[in-house]
Simulated scan of single mutants.
Amino acid sequence: MLREWRHSRRLSQLDFALAAGVSPRYVSLVETGRSRPSADMVLRLAAQLDVPLRHRNRLLVAAGFAPRYRERPLDEPDMSAVRDAVARVLRAHEPFPALVVDRRWNIVMINAPVEHFLADVDPELLGDPVNMVRLGLDPGGLASRIVNLTDVRSLFRARLSRQAARTGDPVVAALYDEFFAEDEPGGSAPGVESEVATPMIFRFRGRELRLFSTITTFGTPQDITLEEISIESYYPADADSAALLRSIADTPPAPRAPSSLRPA
């Protein structure tokens, strides 16, 4: 398992050993099962390879130790402080849209402005769990309203590719194949020019809404759930877009198909 992670990071035994502060021979002995590392050494090597917490537990079990990291759903009582903190971030971002996604791009939480974008979405895409990639790129979702869909696809493709390589998650790899397997190798680079970041341009209520996004994650998480969720916050890329979002803040969203998505 350790060798597979080392190969995925494109490191030789020598490079890995130097980075981890051990000898190449020791790395070889561990990878071939001729030396049993301590639990702390397993975690040290895993950290050097940037192995996700979920897989660090698997490495520990393979080496004969108990898992170190817990995985608790956000709705558990002992995660209430974290859940409240995330909800506070989402609400504080209003009147601009923000949402929380898990490791497989399923939407976990949203704020109220997101609801304005869900009208006319195919009800099948709003079934639990609602997947952000499918919602954004499927023709029945938001894709028909994204003016610069080619650019947005390029951004999604790059993020999914990096995530699949980093985590080895087969579901993320399958999601990548679902939308990008037939793309030309390398694909096209984002083409919309901006002084800030590549915007996402929506046709929204008869106008063009330009947004760019930021991604927020938890620092030094010790819980698998916390490591695997991120907050996607969208900001207006120009004054007209900001004014449009503020103008709809106090208006009820258009009716949409029932789903598990409710504002925090």
Rank of each mutant, 00 (worst) to 15 (best):
A197M: 14
S188V: 01
L226G: 04
N111Y: 05
G141K: 00
E182T: 15
T167N: 07
E115F: 06
T167Y: 00
P185S: 08
S233M: 06
G136V: 07
E94D: 11
D151Y: 01
A47N: 01
P221H: 00
D78R: 02
A189P: 01
S28N: 10
F212S: 10
G191T: 11
L49S: 05
Q13C: 05
E232L: 00
N148K: 05
F218L: 02
L126F: 09
P236M: 02
L125K: 03
V114C: 14
T225Q: 02
V152P: 07
V114I: 09
P236T: 03
T217N: 12
D40V: 15
E182S: 15
L43E: 00
L11T: 00
D128I: 07
G21M: 06
E4K: 08
R103D: 15
D122F: 00
N131M: 03
F212H: 11
P221M: 09
A17T: 08
P73D: 05
P185Q: 08
L155P: 03
R10K: 14
E71A: 06
L43M: 04
G140Y: 05
I231A: 04
F218S: 11
I215P: 02
S233G: 10
R25G: 02
L126N: 07
R36Y: 12
A243K: 14
R153G: 01
V27E: 04
V51Q: 05
A39S: 09
P258R: 12
M109S: 11
P199T: 12
A85H: 14
R262M: 14
T32D: 04
R262K: 15
P255S: 13
V22R: 04
V196G: 11
S154D: 03
M200L: 14
L160I: 09
L155V: 08
R72K: 15
T217R: 15
A264M: 04
L244P: 13
R25E: 08
L155G: 15
Q222V: 14
L45P: 00
L211G: 06
S8F: 01
A164Y: 10
L126W: 10
V82C: 14
T214P: 12
A63F: 07
P123L: 01
D240V: 05
R54Q: 07
P95H: 09
R88W: 09
